[in-house]
Computed example of a mutant assay.
Amino acid sequence: MKLTPPTKNVYWIATVLAVLGLLGSFVSIPFVSAYYFWFVVVAFVLLWLGVSMKGF
């Protein structure tokens, strides 16, 4: 399998989701704190797709 760097948009979306998930685990943010684990999981999956699929 050939790996490629993710696009800038995917990278930044994943970064924002991961930061929100981490903040939501420590600070009470109305929607984010209830689903902080899933924010981090979605960020990881986005990065994984960005690396494994060309042009994603």
Rank of each mutant, 00 (worst) to 15 (best):
M1Q: 10
K2V: 09
T4E: 13
P6Q: 05
P6F: 02
T7Q: 14
K8C: 06
K8E: 10
K8L: 12
N9Q: 14
N9H: 12
V10A: 10
Y11E: 09
W12Q: 14
I13P: 03
A14I: 06
A14E: 06
A14R: 00
T15Y: 08
T15D: 08
V16Y: 12
V16N: 08
L17H: 01
V19Y: 06
V19R: 02
V19W: 10
L20R: 03
L20G: 04
G21H: 00
L22C: 11
L22S: 07
L23R: 01
L23W: 05
G24I: 03
G24F: 06
S25Q: 11
S25T: 11
F26E: 07
V27C: 06
V27P: 03
I29C: 03
I29L: 15
P30A: 04
P30E: 00
P30R: 00
P30C: 05
P30S: 03
V32W: 03
V32F: 02
V32M: 04
V32A: 01
V32I: 15
V32E: 00
V32L: 00
V32T: 04
S33Y: 01
S33Q: 05
A34D: 15
A34I: 10
Y35G: 04
V40D: 01
V41D: 04
V42K: 02
V42G: 01
A43M: 08
F44R: 01
F44W: 10
F44L: 06
F44A: 11
V45M: 09
V45Y: 11
L46I: 06
W48F: 13
W48L: 14
W48C: 09
W48N: 07
L49I: 09
G50A: 03
G50H: 05
G50L: 03
V51Q: 06
S52G: 09
S52H: 14
M53L: 11
M53W: 10
K54P: 07
F56A: 06
